[in-house]
Computed example of a mutant assay.
Amino acid sequence: MGRLTASRRVTRITLDGANRQRPDAVAVEEPLEIRVAGSPLAVTMRTPGHDVELAAGFLVSEGVISRGEDFARAIHCGGPGTGGADGNTYNVLDLTLAPGMALPSPDIARSFYTTSSCGVCGTASIEAVEKVSTYDVSTDPLSVSPHEVAAFPDRLREQQKTFDKTGGLHGAALFDAATGELLVAREDVGRHNAVDKVVGWALLNDRLPLRDTVLQVSGRVSFELVQKAVMAGIPMLSAVSAPSSLAIELAERAGLTLAAFVRGNSMNLYTRADRVRVPEAPASTTPSAEKMTSVR
């Protein structure tokens, strides 16, 4: 596995006139070429670590595979120009699907590469962005306490060890809605990569579809994050920041519960608010001050 952090010297300036140089830890960003049966499929910019999970989750997001039995193995491999000055060959990953599985369609091949900020850049056509999921999240009977949901961001934050050093990574975590158990947490310079790593973990542990679970992310919610949740059979997505209009529209069409601005003792529920058990307001307080905000 490659390095998660690198040290760089910075000049720190403060408004009181202080000026000094010191080492600073920064998050590593490197390209990962994903191949299937030897054929290049995509190049994504990511933080090294959990690469097999990342690639497996990417294939789930793209609708190539949907269950653990569809995946056979993965190997890091080298090739012309992949060694680098330090001889690293960990930036090329070749995946093998189970016998009988269809190889990815050329239609989903990335024209150039997937950046750490955008997981759908370079997709062959905008019409291909919205995938058809194997799983129907609208029928999932998930029911979760708002107190548990409100605690998920802090519990994810506790797992972000590399963020503690660099301040530069997104996080994603999966929680069991019935027990509140933290199942897995991952970090990456790209928010979509962090989610793919979580989904890939589930695939490799034969846990798809991820029924009765909540996906917690550390930032905003874009269309692609909702899509990834739906493709993995996750019925609820929670975020500490804002959703986009397309994210809300897709969540509504798919029947996914979308919570955003999950901060402190409040949250906004944009879709399928019925899955969050809204608490009764104490008799001595104004109901609107205590109830969770519900936006449909």
Rank of each mutant, 00 (worst) to 15 (best):
L210Y: 02
D212Y: 01
R220K: 09
R191C: 00
V199C: 08
K197R: 15
G200F: 06
V199P: 02
W201Y: 15
Q216G: 06
L208R: 12
R220M: 08
G219V: 03
V217A: 10
V184H: 14
L203I: 08
D212V: 04
L215A: 10
W201K: 06
K197C: 05
N193T: 08
D188I: 07
V221T: 15
T213R: 14
D188V: 05
V221A: 12
D188A: 10
V195Y: 04
S218K: 01
V199S: 07
R211L: 07
A185M: 05
V184K: 13
R186W: 00
L208Q: 10
T213G: 04
L182A: 13
V221C: 09
R207G: 07
L203P: 00
L210N: 03
D206A: 11
W201R: 04
L215G: 09
N205W: 10
S218G: 13
G190I: 04
V221S: 08
L215P: 02
G219T: 06
L215V: 12
R207H: 12
D206M: 01
N205I: 06
R211H: 13
A194E: 03
D196I: 01
W201A: 03
R207W: 04
V199H: 05
D188R: 02
R191Y: 00
T213C: 15
H192P: 00
D206I: 00
L183Q: 14
A194L: 05
V221G: 03
L208M: 14
A202W: 04
H192Y: 00
W201H: 15
L182M: 14
L210G: 05
N193C: 14
E187Q: 14
L183I: 15
